[in-house]
């Protein structure tokens, strides 16, 4: 143990590193920036996605208004519901990305390291829950709507038959719709597996039991 006096080793290796790597001009320039290049790139990518989905939402709403008001088309309730579902999907995506952007931009610099870790974990969990619930409600409603329409089309539950090929396709579509939220949840867990594991390890490590 005595072979490595860590403090001595540390001070010995840092005796010649006190020269300033940034001069006053550079510091002044940096202070005028909002973020460094790498972080700014991540944030601008998220903003671009928000812009893209918002644009698609606006185009969709404009098309609906154009068809309804200017062309005076009598759109059926089903068509309107379908367009609403598409619009709702864009809204869910926009909310989800805004949530991520807020998590990226809000800082917890003045908190202790432990508080900041716990807060970040809470935020990440909130994103996961909001994403999952939004998609769960969305795709389950879509599945119910599909079932309702199909039963209406075939003239009632009594006409359900396994010989019907379309019914198999509808059934597959429904299974896909019902499984999407769970797949998204699984994907989230896989994507952030390392991050969750680091956060949990850090939180456990700092879990003061004394």
């Amino acid at each position: 143990m005595d072979k490595f006096d860590l403090k001595k080793l540390w001070s010995e290796t840092h005796t010649k590193t006190q020269q300033n790597i940034h001069d006053d001009v550079n510091i002044r320039k940096t202070l005028k920036m909002n973020h460094s290049k790498t972080i700014a790139k991540v944030l601008s990518d998220l903003k671009l996605k928000i812009f893209g989905y918002s644009l698609m939402l606006i185009i969709l709403i404009s098309l609906m208004v154009y068809a309804w008001v200017y062309l005076d088309l009598k759109l059926s309730a089903n068509t309107l519901i379908l367009f609403s579902f598409i619009g709702l999907f864009f809204i869910i995506k926009i909310i989800s990305i805004i949530n991520r952007l807020l998590t990226m931009t809000k800082t917890t610099n003045n908190l202790s390291v432990k508080e900041s870790i716990l807060l970040f974990r809470k935020k990440l969990n909130r994103i996961k829950v909001i994403d999952f619930l939004s998609y769960l409600i969305y795709f389950y409603t879509l599945a119910i709507w599909l079932i309702y329409n199909y039963i209406n089309d075939i003239g009632g539950v009594n006409n359900l038959s396994w010989d019907n090929e379309i019914q198999t396709l509808v059934l597959i579509a429904i299974i896909i719709l019902l499984s999407i939220p769970w797949l998204i949840k699984y994907q989230h867990n896989q994507r952030y597996k390392k991050l969750y594991s680091n956060l949990n390890d850090s939180a456990n490590f700092l879990n003061d039991v004394t």
């Binding site: 972080i39 917890t108 610099n109 003045n110 202790s112 390291v113 900041s116 991050l195």
Partner: peptide, 18 residues
């Protein structure tokens, strides 16, 4: 130290990189 350590850890988390 408090702010810089928090920021460094935060950058690693947010960039999801080690």
């Amino acid at each position: 130290y408090r702010v810089a350590l928090n920021t460094a850890i935060d950058i690693i988390r947010k960039q999801n990189l080690k």
